[in-house]
Design a protein around this nucleic acid. Structure first.
Ligand SMILES: [Zn+2]
Length: 252
DNA sequence: CGCGTTTGACCCGCGC
DNA sequence: GCGCGGGTCAAACGCG
């Protein structure tokens, strides 16, 4: 047992720890973004409910017409995210100025007159993360068979719906499929209100019970876990995050 | 031969 | 008015 061995081992562990920390940071950012978006959405809902006319001229972004989905997947499997239960026909691809990665344009042709479009683009830094933007909503049923066949979405929902034990090898598994965060809110509002934590503060203080908020977030998380795919790591991370702060899940 | 992807052209809104 | 950047069209291509 020479010290070199231990040193090498320590370095390897440190590298792994760094990688995990980086991923944890990314996941935390996603979760934070989701929470912020939920808070913004709720705030906007209350505001719109109380005040009929909002001075925001935001045309289409007011409603939940556009939803953004952060997907973590293998760089080569990018085209596979198309098979998410819907049938998409690619009708364009463009290179954007900000992002070196090309952006692909898809349109749902599962049903006639379905105006749902979808934009898929890889993240700037992390090429393993793709951002899909869904626009519109389907007026047809989602093919459950195709959805069930679509990658490994069911395993993540199983974690949230049923047992909390994770029967899968965690981060060690290179087959880690996909992370999907469904954020049914436009991204422009996020950037607008990104530097305005007043909403969150106002909401947090004005509301009597913060547990309710946590419960809402949890419910929201559970809601979007049903549809899209989730990586085991994110599922476990979010579950632990929620569980630690609000140890009373009680899913329906 | 039918259908979906590819890929450059075209269009259109916007800022200078 | 013009250039630019993003969104869409459609002809060509490729594959089963
Ligand atoms: Zn559709």
């Amino acid at each position: 047992m020479s010290p070199d061995y231990d040193k090498e081992k320590v370095e390897a562990l440190e590298a792994e720890l760094d990688c995990l920390q980086k991923e944890n940071e990314a996941l935390g950012l996603m979760f934070e973004t989701m929470s912020r978006k939920y808070i913004m959405l709720h705030q906007a809902y209350l505001h719109q409910k109380s005040n009929k006319r909002q001075r925001l001229e935001v045309p289409a972004a007011a409603g939940s017409k556009a939803s953004q989905v952060f997907v973590k997947t293998d760089p080569r499997d990018q085209s596979l995210i198309v098979k998410d239960g819907f049938q998409w026909r690619k009708y364009g691809q463009k290179v954007t100025k900000d992002n070196p990665s090309p952006r692909a344009y898809f349109k749902c042709f599962m049903a006639p007159g379905c105006p749902v479009k979808k934009k898929v683009q890889r993240c700037v830094e992390d090429k393993s993360i793709v951002v899909a933007t869904y626009e519109g909503q389907h007026n047809h049923d989602v093919d459950s068979t195709a959805a069930g066949k679509s990658l490994l979405a069911s395993c993540s929902s199983a974690i949230f719906s049923g047992t909390r034990s994770i029967p899968f090898p965690p981060l060690d598994n290179p087959f880690r499929p996909t992370i999907t965060l469904d954020l049914t809110l436009s991204g422009s509002d996020l950037q607008n209100h990104r530097n305005l934590p007043s909403f969150m503060h106002d909401y947090s203080t004005s509301n009597d019970d913060r547990n309710n908020k946590k419960k809402k977030i949890e419910d929201y998380v559970a809601s979007f876990t049903k549809d899209p795919n989730f990586t085991l790591a994110l599922a476990a991370a979010v579950a632990r995050s929620i569980k630690t702060e609000h140890p009373k899940p009680s899913p329906p």
